[in-house]
Simulated assay, not measured.
Amino acid sequence: METNKMVETYYKSINWNAIEDQVDKATWEKLTEQFWLDTRIPLSNDLDDWRTLTPEEKNLVGHVFGGLTLLDTLQSQDGNDQLRKDARTQHEIACFNNIQFMESVHAKSYSSIFSTLNTDSEIEEIFDWTDHNEYLQTKAEIINDLYQNGEPLQKKIASVFLETFLFYSGFYTPLYYLGNNKLANVAEIIKLIIRDESVHGTYIGYKFQLGFNELSEDKQTEIADWMYDLLYRLYENEEKYAETLYDGIGWTEEVKTFMRYNANKALMNLGQNPLFPDTADDVNPIVMNGLSTGTSNHDFFSQVGNGYLFGHVTAMSDEDYNIGLDR
């Protein structure tokens, strides 16, 4: 009887009983625990609120969500694909697979909002605006160029800046309306997305810090200088983007404060010192109230909200940028 001979390993099975980095396991569990789909949120319940908005406000909401769709598309189609190539462990690859899928869920969620609130011609205008807005396209180009051509640590910096900073010029709008007791179901989707992005930004920031801490002091200084230069470049463009969105409605300066606050959070995720003086106390309290409003709880059997499916979407605070993963 011929015995099986040992051969050189061609392809290695992932073994979840032999974890190299416990943060991978904790992140996987957090990501799967938070799983959700936009189809379970009754967006049509927001139609009465939608009808009370002015044409300018409706236009703002559409363009904001169009911009967010573009960024989530970038993350799902290119960002996570590139980050996965530099993974340290097989379990990290599994986490990126999950993150990539959820970014696709995020992008689809905005289309669900459009199909509920907007006409076909309005949806067409939103995507045309998104595809041709100078500042939106510029930030997509900056980030994607780093994904395609950057070094591994540069890719991680770009991803954290996108998820913890650049999204927030758009998140401001639904959070503002939620703080004013409007568009609660739309905002419920946004809060689920924010909850996901908090995990993504923290996890990728942690992986950045592992690599960063292995560098020489001179190389760390070089990377840190490059990081802050990139942030300045992105912030300058984001200011102009915010102006195109919010000047007509008078919210621009408040949005910029919110942006700076979240830029600091991105730096914190990367283990760096904050750049801007803005704190939570400087952010419009209506928006902070929107962040801290608990999830709705819809009918348990037909139209269920995330309160039934996933527990509470709890208040966002400084600690939300540390999701409890052991460092």
Rank of each mutant, 00 (worst) to 15 (best):
L215S: 10
L270K: 10
T279Y: 02
G211R: 05
G290A: 01
T164D: 14
Y177G: 01
L166K: 09
G250T: 13
Y177H: 12
G248E: 15
V283N: 12
I223V: 15
T202A: 11
Y177N: 07
G250W: 08
Y232N: 05
F171Q: 03
G250L: 07
L178A: 05
F208L: 07
I286G: 09
L275T: 07
G248K: 15
S169G: 14
P274I: 02
Q272M: 15
Y232M: 04
Y176D: 01
I286C: 03
L245F: 03
Q209I: 02
N264L: 05
L183A: 08
Q209T: 12
N144G: 10
Q209N: 10
T173Y: 10
L192T: 13
G201C: 03
T279S: 13
K240R: 10
N213G: 14
N144A: 04
F171R: 05
V186K: 08
Y168C: 12
A280W: 02
T221H: 14
S169R: 01
G250P: 03
P174K: 06
N273M: 12
E222L: 09
E239P: 07
E214W: 00
L210Q: 15
I193G: 02
E254N: 15
N262D: 07
Y228N: 03
L153T: 12
E214F: 00
W251P: 04
L183F: 09
D278L: 01
D229P: 03
E238T: 09
N264T: 02
Q154T: 14
L245Y: 01
T257G: 14
Q148P: 06
N144L: 05
Y241T: 01
G248P: 12
L162S: 14
H200M: 00
L275R: 09
K219F: 04
I193H: 04
E217M: 09
F212R: 05
L267E: 00
E217Q: 13
G290Y: 05
K219C: 03
E238M: 11
E197I: 01
G290N: 02
Y232P: 03
V186M: 11
I193D: 03
I157V: 15
V283T: 03
L162K: 14
M288R: 13
R233S: 12
S159D: 13
E239T: 14
N213T: 07
L231T: 09
D281Y: 08
S216A: 11
A263L: 01
Y206W: 11
E163Q: 12
E222H: 05
Y241E: 07
Y176Q: 00
D229V: 11
I193Q: 03
G150P: 03
Y232K: 05
T164P: 07
D281H: 10
Y228H: 10
N213A: 00
A242M: 14
M268L: 11
H200C: 09
D282S: 13
S198V: 13
Y241H: 14
R195M: 06
K240H: 10
L291N: 11
Q220V: 04
Y176N: 08
G205M: 02
L183N: 11
F258L: 10
Q148N: 10
N185D: 14
